[in-house]
């Protein structure tokens, strides 16, 4: 599924749908910045199915699109900060290679809430917001675990399908490159003949 534009578009749509569903779920606790982070399912899946570059592009695009549709300039700033920090940390943890998807997602949830809070403190210009740090850190771990379980469940079902598409693409690519090589060598021959 690597580097296919329709694939990326479909995943971006998934991300936006997830965040719409999330906006329909009321939050029972009065903690600013607290949410389930359902959209992160898509980002975690993309890290595994596409790679860091594609996941990053979709992550940033969904923050902007969702921000313009449901939020305001400030909510874009918070989400962008949280999204960037959590993406970098998830990528590093994944690249380290020794941790499972759930852990990657937990780290993402933890750092997302941390980044969001720091930027909110900067924008509000008040240190008082730090009061919510412990609650946000714990909820980040818990929601991250839930998101990780969902992502892992989806991934183990989609994995085979994705791999089969990848293999098909690879064989196609190999065939194409072989064709190119053949035509190249023919061209070389004609060049030599001409000279």
């Amino acid at each position: 599924m690597k580097k296919s534009l329709p694939g990326l578009a479909i995943f971006l749509t998934f991300a936006i749908i997830c965040s719409y569903i999330e906006s329909l779920i009321p939050i029972p606790f009065g903690v600013p910045g607290m949410k389930l982070g359902l959209t992160n399912v898509v980002i975690v899946l993309m890290l595994y199915m596409f790679g860091p570059f594609e996941a990053f592009i979709v992550s940033m695009l969904r923050v902007l699109l969702i921000g313009f549709m449901f939020g305001n300039l400030y909510s874009i700033a918070y989400s962008l900060a949280g999204g960037l920090l959590s993406f970098i940390c998830m990528y590093l943890i994944k690249r380290f290679g020794k941790f499972r998807m759930i852990t990657v997602s937990v780290v993402g949830g933890f750092t997302h809430n941390l980044g969001q809070l720091l930027v909110a403190m900067f924008f509000f210009d008040t240190p008082y917001l730090i009061y919510y740090l412990p609650v946000l850190l714990i909820t980040g771990v818990v929601t991250g675990a839930i998101i990780g379980i969902i992502a892992q469940a989806v991934y183990s079902r989609v994995e085979k399908f994705a791999n089969s598409i990848d293999e098909k693409n690879q064989t196609d690519n190999i065939k194409q490159s072989e064709n190119v090589k053949q035509t190249d060598s023919k061209a070389d021959n004609t060049d030599i003949n001409q000279s």
Binding site: K98, F99, R100, I102, T103, V106, V107, F110, P134, L137, I138, G140, V141, A145, I149, Q152
Partner: peptide
């Protein structure tokens, strides 16, 4: 789903919280 080191890392983050 989880290995020992995963559980340790998650536990550490939870403990920080």
């Amino acid at each position: 789903w989880l290995k020992k080191r995963d559980i340790i890392l998650i536990a550490v983050l939870l403990l920080v919280g």
